[in-house]
């Protein structure tokens, strides 16, 4: 995805997802959960939104899905309001794992077919096209081999792939993934990133990954936005220098990146005032892409 990062997609007439000065304040809360969020995701792009717990990630996802309306500002999904886009099944959503009831006596294939059949008239059987979409989603995500297994008896990584397949089976135009790699080991995360790249290459679908995990956004996202109440940076994964991370998240660095080691000396060296050539934004703290050498020297992730 390095090529995509350095040669971003040309802006389309209609953005896949567009936030324009979005603020949201919960009832009786003193401060806004998110404020002045502006960004645009082009069709076919993969955006990573990185932020620690309490940064407003869930609020942002709920607004993008149209589950809550922003206090101010506007949101469009392919030019429509999020609730309308959701009603037209343009949005595929991967919730955090803990929400599903794994005791259900359902096979992986049945779970994947759920969105495609949920709003079908009760007397109608799924169409051949709908069944083909389910099989294609199972194939693309590598779920075919365990499609007959009960949903409660597959691994965490397999479950996340199943959830992606379920989202894809409804043939959405944009996928919103909420903490997709939580609870998955490093190998599983790697496989997950590869699968996502494969899906995107095959379908050309837009993907938004919202996570607190640096590795998840670093693996394959075209761009990364750092969220901490407001969007602080808008850079390619290579631009996530220790300096950027330290500056954007300040005190939260340990909380969010855990054991990622920040080399203060190298971090200072990485500072680059030049804006990223594309996707300029009022809040950008954009930085030139970092080299692989800098990447290895500046951060060290312990697995």
């Amino acid at each position: 995805m390095t090529d995509a990062a350095t040669q971003p997609l040309a802006p389309a007439a209609t953005a896949a997802l567009e936030f324009d000065r979005v603020c949201y304040t919960y009832e009786q809360a003193a401060n806004p959960a998110i404020r002045d969020i502006t960004f645009r995701v082009e069709p076919g792009e993969r955006l990573g939104i990185l932020g620690p717990n309490g940064a407003g990630k869930t609020t942002l996802v709920r607004i993008a899905l149209g589950l809550i309306a922003p206090t101010s500002g506007s949101v469009r999904v392919f030019g429509e309001l999020p609730a309308q886009a959701r009603a037209q099944r343009w949005i595929g959503y991967l919730p955090q794992r803990s929400r599903a009831e794994l005791a259900f006596p359902l096979s992986v294939r049945q779970v994947v077919a759920m969105p495609a059949t949920a709003r079908l008239a009760p007397w109608k059987r799924p169409s051949p096209e709908g069944r083909a979409a389910v099989e294609r989603a199972l194939h693309l995500t590598g779920c075919e081999e365990f499609a007959a297994s009960p949903i409660g008896r597959i691994s965490g990584g397999q479950f996340q792939r199943t959830m992606i397949a379920r989202a894809l089976a409804a043939q959405p135009r944009i996928l919103i993934l909420d903490e997709p790699t939580i609870g998955i080991d490093v190998t599983g995360q790697q496989r997950f990133a590869e699968m996502l790249s494969h899906v995107q290459a095959e379908l050309g679908i837009t993907v938004v990954v919202v996570t607190h995990d640096l590795r998840t956004v670093a693996a394959g996202c075209d761009r990364v936005a750092c969220l901490h109440r407001s969007l602080h940076a808008h850079v390619s994964p290579e631009g996530l220098t220790p300096a950027v991370l330290a500056e954007v998240f300040r005190h939260e660095v340990e909380g969010i990146f855990g054991d990622v080691h920040i080399d203060a000396h190298r971090a200072t060296e990485c500072r680059d005032p030049a804006h990223h050539p594309d996707h300029t934004h009022p809040h950008d703290h954009a930085h030139a892409p970092r080299t692989a050498d800098q990447s290895e020297g500046g951060t060290r992730a312990h697995d």
């Binding site: 959701r86 099944r89 919730p95 929400r99 009831e101 259900f104 759920m114 709003r119």
Partner: peptide
């Protein structure tokens, strides 16, 4: 279909309308 989807995964079902 919709009731089973909701019962299995409320958040996922809501996101699918």
């Amino acid at each position: 279909r919709s009731m089973l989807f909701w019962a299995f995964d409320e958040v996922g079902a809501i996101s699918c309308g």
